[in-house]
Design a protein around this nucleic acid. Structure first.
Lengths: 345, 345
DNA sequence: CTGTTAGCGCCTTCAG
DNA sequence: CTGAAGGCGCTAACAG
């Protein structure tokens, strides 16, 4: 028999009981004798029964589906995060729908409509670079669909998020350079209206301050996460009237192209100049094996955000959570013992 | 009113007609007057009606969902492919469930079970490195669930796939080196039981042969896609009794670590030695901006595979298709004009 | 062209 | 503890 089409009625008939009892047993209801429960489960396994989630979800008015909105799947941080999201979601019995905003506000809005049309039970979002207005999240709130921001968040009241401790990361990176002896440290930033770049910048300033170094805004170089920006930043930096001896780059795209430009200019990295950059294992291995980097724990963030979201979905009633989970990003001084490792995420 | 809970019955009642007519109109059935159709659609929009796919799918016994199995989401080629899959699937009205095999046969099998339990309408697969036995795909065949291989495929009869023209890519890469003047060209391969690496290797040999160069198996270096392999390959290569003047690397992981090892050994790339490697824009920009690479068109492959799969799902009856779509990978000689571009996928 | 009827597979009152 | 009955929202016969 097609094990594909076994329903609770089939197994009820074979056992001369009612399908409602089967349903209860399969949902582990306490209102069924252990004995009959066991008979039912045995028969279900024997027939290769698989619950029809469509029917179940229709009845229960839920989808067991999570929506995810990220700027771009192919950026390593996000694909790692998605790996963590998928794995955790499946474990908790949820499916996942993934959408890309491609850093466009308009697409982010239409992504939300897609997810709404799919009646997702909850949403995970990392906002686009363009997003400075948060009206499109109101639709989710109205329908009481919980959502959790991860990595890139925004300050909507009564909203949860899972973040990297960007302040600490920026602080650690900068302090690392200071302890190494750098006195004049440039900061390659990202779009400063995004919280993550703002916080990394604040960390940078705090570390300078702690070590009695003045902040010089000529040393702040912003960028829009383009390759060309890193090159431009290096050129501007080298045109300064004084010598820079360290760089903390808060975005990896700029970090990478900056490294290359430095090399083209005949500057040895990281001997002539010390650099710390946000990155990931693969990339950091490539740009400069001895470079100190700060890994973005994408997988962990994805896992953590999913767990938080699912707990909100299950709690149902109180949609007014305002929980913030902070995940640390660790400074990694790469050395030869790390070669040959496969990335885990 | 909660636009969330509008059903066809609500709009039927408001218009004093039957819900079945509404259903027909919304499905654009030809058996409804244009006039009533318009009234219905207008009212639906007014109320913000959204079809409940769960109910519809339950009735129609389908899920409008595609399953995807890839070795690892965070590898750039696969995340690009997924971007193409998602975009195409949504356009065609399908959702997507993504699974990672992590290059493990066992996980690939359990992925298929997950997808079966989700009653997906079709599956896209890029097999794991371990997969040499294809029994686990029988379950899909039995239940008449169509599946399409992409990139990494296997020779199951009556099965479709979307592939890169790996033979041509290998041929082009090698010929490129020969035309540049290389006489002694090493080949860094991948696991040769995988069709893609076999075909690239065949292309390599064919180019040598065309240009009257002998194949020397001391110049063939295999690997398991680990960083360490590229390093080992370079060391072995440098230990040869004769000089190598070109490398064609058929896998990017090895290519990257190999480049670094060459530099550590004081060899200038690509002056002392010419290299062509499989890669992607970002990575190739990093390892060596002037390096010639072969881009894997992940997005296109994802799109194409999805279109093929959906057409098979819609054709329903004939599950015996055996279609192979070949996508070309182009040789890219990077130059400065390509800097600053954002990747599109 | 439109209405009536029935049922996809499941879960949940309400009775017993 | 279990059975009977109804309905989630939609669509597809079958009538008219």
């Amino acid at each position: 028999m097609d094990s594909d089409k076994i329903t609770i009625h089939d197994i009820a008939k074979l056992l001369n009981i009612d399908s409602s009892t089967v349903s209860r047993a399969l949902n582990n209801s306490p209102r069924v004798t252990e004995k009959t429960k066991n008979r039912i489960i045995a028969k279900a396994n024997e027939l290769g029964y698989q619950r029809n989630h469509l029917a179940s979800n229709l009845r229960l008015n839920k989808t067991n589906t999570l929506g995810v909105i990220v700027p771009r799947i192919s950026r390593h941080f996000f694909s790692s995060a998605i790996a963590g999201i998928e794995e955790t979601a499946y474990k908790l019995g949820f499916n996942v729908i993934i959408c890309q905003s491609l850093e466009l506000l308009e697409r982010e809005q239409s992504n939300i409509n897609t997810l709404l049309a799919n009646r997702v039970d909850g949403v995970l979002v990392s906002i686009s670079m363009e997003t400075e207005n948060y009206d499109h999240f109101e639709g989710l709130k109205q329908r009481k669909i919980p959502f959790v921001f991860f990595d890139r968040h925004c300050n909507i009241p009564e909203t949860s998020s899972v973040l990297i401790d960007d302040f600490k990361a920026g602080f650690d990176a900068t302090e690392h350079l200071i302890i190494k002896g750098c006195q004049s440290i440039a900061h390659f930033s990202g779009p400063l209206h995004l919280e993550i770049y703002k916080n990394r910048f604040e960390g940078y300033k705090a570390a300078l301050s702690k070590h009695n170094l003045d902040f010089n805004d000529a040393l702040l170089f912003s960028s829009r996460l383009m390759e060309q920006d890193g090159i431009d930043n290096v050129n501007k930096m080298l045109a300064l009237s004084f010598r820079v001896d360290g760089i903390f780059s808060a975005n990896d795209v700029a970090a990478i192209s900056a490294m290359q430009q430095l090399k083209r200019e005949g500057i040895t990295v990281p001997k002539d100049i010390a650099v710390v950059g946000f990155s990931n294992e693969t990339i950091s291995a490539i740009i400069e094996p001895s470079l100190t980097t700060i890994n973005q724990p994408g997988f962990d963030i994805g896992r953590s955000a999913t767990e938080l979201l699912v707990s909100q979905i299950k709690n149902g009633t109180k949609h007014t959570t305002n929980e913030h989970i902070i995940i640390h990003a660790n400074l990694i001084e790469r050395n030869s013992s790390q070669k040959g490792k496969q990335p885990k995420d």
